[in-house]
């Protein structure tokens, strides 16, 4: 007889349910079975009404984020073998986001925050395409490389109690992305993005819980990015204050 594992899956069917509930499934166990494989097994063999998001199966697309035993995880990168000691594995939709259906979250608030910080190269004067690429040395690239690895999976938002308290907070992913462009030698948009760092919903809403960096599947370290943003915001404040004292415009 095949060994099985109990997987408890959160269900929420907007047509019938007023609140999420839990359904247990027995999944045939194997050493290389990921949580995503288990969810696909349930959907294909046991209950086709289960809804969950996935695409690449290799931690690149960022679609399959869920809570596994209360921790934000990519289901494709999390394996049942690591939960053998526990009686059951519980899979829920990501914390802090509205639940659309079963394990499917509505992450549009997070996507809006990403757009807010203007995550593209801003130049004071665009050079024509014929002038070629903007050159950059490997050392210059290294300064923002880690922050550019984000796959927009939203795990850091599920990990952030400040975002849970106030969804207007721009949050770890968006503020790390702002830092990624501010640190790019080809970019000249730091002054434009400063209004978002300085805003009430910006870096100062972060209290450095640091869990966002622990759960990030791509080692982006958003907590470091946000708190470096606080240093930049402090310097900006001091410079503005000095300019006002000297009778200049603060902008």
């Amino acid at each position: 007889m095949t060994e099985t594992v109990t997987v408890r899956v959160q269900r929420y069917r907007p047509e019938e349910d007023t609140a999420p509930w839990e359904q247990s499934f027995e999944v045939p166990y194997s050493e290389d079975l990921s949580i995503l494989d288990a969810l696909n097994q349930i959907k294909d063999q046991q209950d086709p009404t289960l809804s969950h998001r996935w695409s690449c199966r290799m931690a690149i697309c960022g679609s399959c984020g869920v809570m596994v035993n209360n921790e934000p995880k990519l289901s494709c990168k999390t394996f049942l073998r690591d939960y053998r000691e526990q009686a059951a594995v519980t899979v829920r939709a990501l914390d802090n986001f509205p639940i659309e259906r079963d394990l499917v979250s509505d992450i549009s608030g997070f996507i809006d925050h990403l757009e807010t910080v203007q995550p593209w190269l801003i130049r004071s004067e665009e050079q024509p395409v014929s002038a070629g690429a903007y050159p950059q040395t490997p050392e210059q690239m290294q300064r923002y490389a880690a922050f550019s690895q984000c796959i927009n999976c939203g795990l850091c938002y599920a990990a952030c109690p400040q975002f849970g308290r106030d969804p207007a907070f721009l949050g770890p992913g968006a503020l790390a992305l702002a830092q990624r462009y501010n640190l790019d030698s080809r970019d000249e948009g730091a002054a434009q993005r400063m209004q978002w760092l300085n805003a009430g919903e910006g870096v100062w809403s972060c209290t450095f819980v640091g869990y966002c960096s622990e759960v990030c599947p791509k080692d982006v370290d958003p907590a470091a990015a946000i708190n470096r943003g606080k240093v930049a915001s402090d310097i900006n404040y001091a410079v503005n204050l000095l300019n006002i004292l000297r009778g200049k415009d603060d902008a």
């Binding site: 209360n70 939709a93 109690p161």
Partner: peptide, 24 residues
């Protein structure tokens, strides 16, 4: 049918995870 379930932060959120307990 669009009827998203809004998850509210629980008052005891900081007790539910070792990382949050260390922070607190």
């Amino acid at each position: 049918m669009h009827k998203p379930y809004i998850q509210r932060q629980r008052a005891d959120w900081w007790l539910r995870n070792p990382a949050y307990r260390r922070y607190m």
